[in-house]
Design a protein around this nucleic acid. Structure first.
Lengths: 199, 199
DNA sequence: GTCTATAACCGGATAGAC
DNA sequence: GTCTATCCGGTTATAGAC
């Protein structure tokens, strides 16, 4: 049984790489078969459909991300530290599961239309609530600036962080930890030099 | 002649809406025909192919954005004001041409593969250079914090701004000018309340 | 568990009548 | 300038042999 599961996992992993590189819709079952060393028809012995493969990849990814977020929030009481932990957790997720993350980023519209992922919007709303609660707590306790709009801040943070998966590559100029800290620094203190703008 | 051009422009505008809403690859020529009130075959009297339509939409959009950026940079000498003008110009572009902008955001991979858009990467590199030059000037003149990495700052800014086109809708809770100013405030000063973190 | 062969469908694009 | 009719290629998925 372990052997079969391994084979399944191998096929799924190489399929995820293809989905990430070319987009889900543009990846054919023939290509998935080629990458796994079998013919497309044989895929249907392991999976019921191409969309079922996509669903399995994305579900596992979301489950993992949810777990990381829960640890991040539970590990701190200060909202600023919680927010920083959420940012770090996001970058670590994107480092550890780049293929699934890229699928999630690039093909959200496709995923929403997959029958088995009809609860996707609900899951994503849960992530959003986690971030916004932390931001709101920061404002309420005076750690964050009072003028901030939590929803808008969340959206800018989210959209700044996740596309990193498209340009970050392991072993290149930046390590993911460095990028995470630069992101934290930028969003915590802003661009402007204090003396020049806060007079 | 004017009549023909109008008809062309109408078809192109409704096609752009479809491309933006469903994605370019998922939009069929039959749907484009339906939206224009003609059959798919008749489209080929006005355009040589579906990709030719896409190319025309995107080229016009990029030309307009380039012009806005040039005005933004030329109108100021202080790097902080130049950066703010670039941010405002981006949001105004996204407000005035939401369909083309969304295509550009969502279907970049598709666009890169369109033969007629083989210079796309080069054009985009020009945009990037404009932003990075301004950020570097801000650091050099001491207006921006010295620790900043211009390339990274550019990427976070770019990725925070453009996805706005996906959730912003005219006449809703926020006007685009408000969103632009909130973006400027967030990236200029950061999240942290000064007293709490700068001690 | 994989292969062969093929069904059933849908996409972009074309030719020629009107 | 639009319609009718159709071609051709590529897609997912299935049936049954091995």
């Amino acid at each position: 049984m372990g052997k079969d599961d391994d084979r399944r996992a191998e096929i799924l992993a190489s399929a995820a790489d293809l989905f990430a590189a070319k987009g889900v819709a543009s990846t054919t079952v023939r290509e998935i078969g080629d990458a796994a060393g079998i013919l497309s028809g044989s895929l249907y012995h392991h999976f019921t459909s191409k969309d079922a493969m996509v669903e399995e990849i994305v579900r596992e990814y979301l489950r993992d991300l949810r777990a990381r977020y829960e640890v991040a929030v539970a590990s701190h009481s200060d909202p600023l530290e919680q927010l920083r932990a959420l940012i770090r957790a996001s970058f670590e997720s994107l480092r550890d599961q780049p293929a699934a993350c890229e699928i999630y980023q690039n093909d959200y519209r496709y995923l929403r239309a997959v029958p088995g992922l009809s609860d996707l919007d609900k899951i994503v709303a849960g992530f959003q609530a986690t971030w916004i609660d932390v931001i709101q707590a920061g404002i309420d306790t005076g750690v964050f600036r009072a003028e901030l709009d939590p929803t808008i801040v969340y959206r800018f943070l989210r959209d700044a962080i996740w596309p990193t998966v498209r340009w970050y590559r392991t072993g290149r100029k930046y390590r993911i930890d460095d990028i995470a800290e630069k992101c934290i620094g930028l969003f915590t203190y802003g661009i402007a030099a204090p003396a020049a703008t806060r007079a």
